[in-house]
Design a protein around this nucleic acid. Sequence first.
RNA 1: GCGCCUGUAGCUCAGUGGAUAGAGCACCGGCCUCCGGAGCCGGGUGCGGAGGUUCGAUUCCUCUCAGGCGUACCA
Length: 560
Amino acid sequence: MNPIEEIKSALRSMIISALNQARAEQALVFDSIPDFVIEVPREKGHGDFACNAAMLMAKSARRAPREIAQIIVDHLDRQALSHLDQVAVAGAGFINMYLRSDWLYKIPALVMRMKEAYGSAPRNGKRVQVEFVSANPTGNLHMGNARGGAIGDTLANVLHYAGYDVEREFYINDAGNQIEIFAESLEARYLQLSGQNVTFPENGYAGQDVVDTVKSIRAREGDSLLQVDSRERQQRLVAMALEEKLAYIRHTLESFGISYDLWYSEKTLHESGQVKAVIEELRQKGYIYEKDGAQWFRTTLLGDEKDEVVIRANGLPTYFAADIAYHKDKFERGFDWVIDVWGADHHGHVARMKGAMAALGYDPAQLDVILMQLVRLYRGGQIVRMSKRTGTTVSLDELIEEVGRDAARFSFVMRNPDSHLDFDMELAKQQSLENPVYYVQYAHARICSIFRQAGAAGVKWDQGETPDIAVLNQAEEIVILRKIAEFPMEVEVAAKTLAPHRIARYSLDLAALFHSYYNHYRVLQENAALQTARLNLMKAIQIVIANALSIIGVTAPEHM
RNA sequence: GCGCCUGUAGCUCAGUGGAUAGAGCACCGGCCUCCGGAGCCGGGUGCGGAGGUUCGAUUCCUCUCAGGCGUACCA
């Protein structure tokens, strides 16, 4: 149920009919109807909807745009849409259409009928997978993971609302080179804590969290790991450390409001032979060759600048090889749409991965990658490096602790993933009371308060379908009804363009309209019809704000 | 050097090829005996630059300047 789309669709077919009628009467000569749009004009004075068809046809129909527009208007069957009021030719050849506001009066009842489902589209039967965060389980979750988490989880919510069956997935990098380094780091710390004088690996994970992990292992295992050989010691340390790290990651993400349908282990891809198999498949298709002892993927055939190694000279597959196998596995699991949320430092990987999928016979258009620009973290104006190696990082736990889950999620979701984000912890804390999220939440709490007042006063009002609704004729009320009517379209566009930040913007817009309205008009009052109408309006706003916040993963409090 | 992303108001950011480019923060001045003042109202000649495509460009293309990231047998 998408009110705006319904109207647009009706107007569109009305204009197409007019054009065909005009052609039949030879009032206008043209070959085909162009791909015109019915849009909501930015300027209110330009009507409720506007159409640009005449301007697009000017050249082929060899008439001035305004003339064509007038011909279209003259041939409109105005009975086709009962809400249609006036139609005017304006500007360079726009057709501006004005509707009687009664088309909006069914909106509150619709919202109340659908409640938390308002804004959602019917199930479309398509399965989409969103993979996000997928942080290395060798360290803490950092700001980039926080942003990726907020964006990925919100996008998954948006897609669910837009009608998809959504699955969230976390890819566990529990194999490969960085695990080797992790193992060496763990062992070095273990031996150091056992009193041995060993040097820490030069490129090892030097963070305090690794030390803490080893300490907790020692608390359980004591010196027992000194008895076994280095290889087994490393294996056991890694197994225990990964278990602990993953438990931490899972717990932290859950406290950030994120839970996954599947945690997918890279290690299993190697153990099952899927990585080797996919390399073989590519080899048979002529994409693999050997050079300097390594196996290379001829990605230059796919538009890359240089070929990529998939099996190193030491026989170990690269991350790229495992990732190809992983993405093949995603498609084999039958997803119609596969979405990855990656940090911008992986951008070079996007074309290669799409190319690899194409080489394997999959449609690369079914794979989308959201490249999220990196977060630069500041504390009081001082940049903080986010290197896990040096350990000087603010973790997601600390972010939630200091800034709060709602404010943190909202401020990450609010911004376009393409924006380079400078995040200052001190500033975020300092401004926390003026953070936009509270503005939206406050609107919700205020409306709840109105209903508490109404309840305490024993106010009786017809909820949903009521003739009283038609007394909502103030300009502000019409604007709010329109905004509410646009919500399903907003969700649809956010899903289609993979732009979860639109929902946050929308919630801010609606909250602003509400606050302004609240300061100018009283809801609870003597006039029973007006009170009923406005209570219906309030209920609709309350539901839509709650739904928008729920998509963003932020609470909608009744009190603040 | 090459590739990707980004340059919009003092700052942080919106803006699916449309008509007069918008919010928040900050700054100044107003507004509650009234449903929650975490609010409202008022105050603003800004799309990095130059070409091009188009009836129309902040949006698309080319060049250019500036910043971020990448350009490993790391992930």
